[in-house]
Nucleic acid binder design. Structure first.
Lengths: 217, 217
DNA sequence: CGGCACCTTCGTGTATACACCGATTGACCT
DNA sequence: AGGTCAATCGGTGTATACACGAAGGTGCCG
């Protein structure tokens, strides 16, 4: 739609997703307008779009602030994400072409290499891995929904990886998904992906601790 | 957020969902502003929110129009809806209280009565039935997502019921869901709900025909 | 008579101005 | 001195004004 409003939306989205703007931060229209050198109007439109995507929250007469997600809600969001990604995996197991399987294998290998590099490297390669599986589902609407939800969860996924050993565990879980996809086993692929994404058991506690550690300073 | 913009959003949403505004209809800001007796500003905000919810589409320099969903995309949306509702049913099978099960049974009975009344009556009672199952899932975020998607599909669900015999078939499918819920069988509940919502086989063709019949005049 | 070009008009995109509401701060009263 | 009330200020919500671009209609030319 609007040229400027769209650009602003993308810019703000980037800042939120990448963590430059942290959950709870207030977004005041005059300040943003001055910062980007535009009037308040396109700022407001950008904010409304971000609110529609769930990245920020707008209260009546209280302005906008980056969506702050409580622990319970966060776990619920990962629940739904797990189901959507499981659906992607299930479809991909049946629909993926040989090239797509190869691309997924490649991304998996890159993840493996990244486990010996840095957390940030793994974070990035992990994104690629998941995205390729989603693409291989050949399900346009599902891809849209999963991608949208993934954006909202992006800041928190990085958090999850900080737990010691989580990166290696994550890579091992990926391996199970890859095997199931290669075997064309939709059920197994879905189950492996669901288990990989969902936050339960010990990982629930880990997440809570990470969130509190993040919120402290 | 905005008092007026919010009210306008609800009003327009109502008109879209209820079919007063049909897919493809253009929404011109000056016309809407005149009709509601407000300026263009809150109209624009309402439109942006509706676009965020996926109910309308906004093109660059082309204004807004009610989202026109093609057959393929529509089927995909029902696919995802089926998965979300299946998840609701699965959770409800494990979490629903005795009162909630009773409420679902009651809604099911109301649906049965409505099959002998009218299509519109069944349509309404069907909504109640599904909503109560969603509520019984006790999963806030899932409920939100499912409800949002259901709004987008509302106009087309009514379409589906027009197929001869679909109403009775739908009620029979509901019965399977209710039985599984009452038995606390999460797997069976999910499967029954998924089969109920998804559009496949003969129902795919039925939907296409209904859409073409609707688009003709 | 038909096609093309130009002009007019309408609609969107952005900026600016104004009104209302809430919050915060200072002063006054107890 | 502490609490409360009021006033001011900052920020959102709405309206209006203006500019750009697109689409459609009309007139002219082939």
């Amino acid at each position: 739609m609007a040229n400027r409003a769209d650009a602003l939306r993308d810019a703000l989205e980037e800042e939120i997703v990448m963590g430059a703007l942290r959950p709870g931060d207030r977004l005041e229209e005059p300040a943003l307008a001055a910062r980007f050198g535009v009037s308040r109007t396109p700022i407001r439109e950008a904010l409304l779009q971000l609110a529609g995507a769930g990245l920020i929250e707008i209260g009546p007469r209280r302005g906008a602030s980056v969506a702050a997600i409580g622990p319970r809600r966060l776990v619920e969001m990962f629940d739904v994400m797990a189901e959507l990604e499981a659906m992607c995996a299930s479809l991909a197991a049946r629909r993926a072409s040989a090239e797509e399987i190869a691309a997924i294998r490649e991304a998996h290998a890159a993840c493996g290499a990244a486990t010996r590099t840095s957390l940030d490297a793994y974070y990035y390669e992990n994104e690629v891995f998941h995205e390729r599986i989603r693409t291989a589902s050949h399900h346009g609407f599902l891809i849209e929904q999963a991608t949208a939800l993934q954006k909202r969860l992006k800041p928190y996924r990085r958090l999850q990886l900080r737990v010691r050993g989580r990166m290696d565990a994550s890579w091992a879980e990926h391996a199970r998904v890859v095997d199931a996809l290669a075997a064309g086993d939709a059920e197994a692929a879905a189950a492996a992906m669901r288990d990989h994404v969902v936050v339960q058991g010990a990982r629930f506690t880990d997440l809570i601790v990470s969130m509190e550690a993040e919120a402290a300073p």
